[in-house]
Simulated assay, not measured.
Amino acid sequence: MSGTGVDRLRALAAPIARLTFARYMLASICALSGDFILFLMLDRIGMPPVAAASGGYAAGLLIHWVISVRFVFNTGTGASHGQRLAFIASALLGMGMTMAMVGGLTLLGIAAPIAKLLSVPASFLTVYAIRKYGVFART
């Protein structure tokens, strides 16, 4: 491919990457909404913060999967079995990060909803990178 062709591909790659991140961000907002609603409900009925965080995260995971496969990463005919397993593995990592942060921060006296909010950026960025460059990477 000529230098001009490579330059054109690079020029197209940046906006597409930004759109993927924007779609992922919107999917994450939807998933986080479901996650946080369930988390608050579970916390309200007296469930321990780590268990409430886990339940909310699991609900958010299901929401995120549906949106990611259909609208974010454009898998075409659907996701492969390997992608499903890798998506779940990335979610388990994110869930572990969330549970550890919520557990640790609540032990320090921070309210559970605040601890949950503080865990979001770390989990979000870690899981996004794994999914973009691993689970749904184009080969």
Rank of each mutant, 00 (worst) to 15 (best):
V50N: 00
L61V: 14
L93H: 11
G55R: 05
I88V: 15
L38D: 08
L42D: 06
S33P: 09
F39P: 03
F39E: 05
H64C: 12
A100L: 12
C30W: 13
A59K: 04
M95T: 09
L92K: 04
M47F: 02
F39V: 06
L92V: 15
P48V: 01
C30M: 10
G82M: 05
D43G: 00
M95Q: 13
L62K: 04
T75W: 00
F87K: 05
I45E: 06
A86V: 05
F71G: 07
S33D: 08
G55C: 04
Q83T: 03
S90E: 02
S80G: 12
G94N: 10
M97C: 15
A100E: 08
F71P: 07
S90W: 07
A91Q: 08
L85S: 13
H81R: 08
A51Y: 04
A86F: 10
A59N: 07
A51T: 03
L40I: 03
G78Y: 02
L61C: 13
I63T: 13
V66W: 09
M99T: 13
G56K: 08
D43E: 04
M101R: 01
Y57Q: 05
L40T: 05
I37L: 14
A89D: 00
M99S: 14
I63A: 11
Q83C: 00
V72A: 01
L61R: 09
L42W: 06
G82Q: 11
F71L: 11
L42E: 10
I63F: 09
Q83S: 00
I63R: 08
I45F: 11
M47T: 01
R44D: 11
G82S: 11
G60F: 09
I45C: 08
T77G: 13
G76T: 03
I67G: 04
W65D: 05
Q83D: 02
Q83Y: 00
S33G: 15
G94L: 14
A79I: 00
A52S: 05
A100Y: 12
P48H: 09
G46L: 00
F36V: 12
A91G: 15
G34F: 14
